[in-house]
Amino acid sequence: MRTDFRSDASKSMKTFPASRPLWGALVPLAFLIAACSPNAPEAPKAPAGPAGKLGTAVVAGRVTLEGAPPLNTRVTMATDPFCNGQHPGETELPEVAVGPDGGLENVLLRVTEGVSGVYAAPAEAKTLDQKGCAYSPRVLAIMTGQPLEIVSSDATIHNVHAAAKENRAFNLGMPAPGTRYTRTFEKPEIVPFRCDVHPWMRAFVAVLPHPFFAVTAADGRFEIRDLPAGTYTVEAWHEKLPRQTFTLTLADGETATHDVAFPSVPSA
């Protein structure tokens, strides 16, 4: 077995000769080493325990940033002509993305207390794309065991490095547009993703054990649906700002509104 840089869908493509004299001695050893590499997909495990319940309550709201938006990192993408063509000159990274009316995008809202039982993961995959030398979306939430499809729409080379701590970390090559991989994560955590070819590319994939989460849209709005009646603690997580939490009690069929305001910080 070897570490495969190619996508799952393109494994029938031709392989490249590796028998150059210099590498001759190292290649067999390399293949042996690659057999132990962590890049292979993890086999999904079925969760055990009583099934969790779904309900009809909803918590919705809007996340805003109080005060002046912080200074985001500015980069130039001159090291790759394709990326530079997409973003000529200096580009501000959307680390703290604030809309014109103060709405804060890319905030994860997740229930951290009050949920019990085991929830089955949806079979439907969520997609993390590499588009214009940036991840799209920047913050994505999935359930444990739910497929994550990683694709590249860019006509340049990327690598996808998932720096997971609780799950198995991996690093995959995305050498051409249309490259596609599917991976699952079995343990809850927020997994930072990065492209080491283009170090400004960052994404965060939140892996959650239940379906009670949302990520804010460009206007800062969110909605967590299907909650059973009960008391919950909800955490608002942002990649650069200190976490916020709130607690609320919901009755069946109730739609509660709760807005969250993050205090600003000097720089992202």
Partner: peptide
């Protein structure tokens, strides 16, 4: 980690 494979580079 800009090149994820070894000894070849992106094959």
């Amino acid at each position: 980690l800009a090149v994820p494979d070894w000894p070849l580079s992106y094959g």
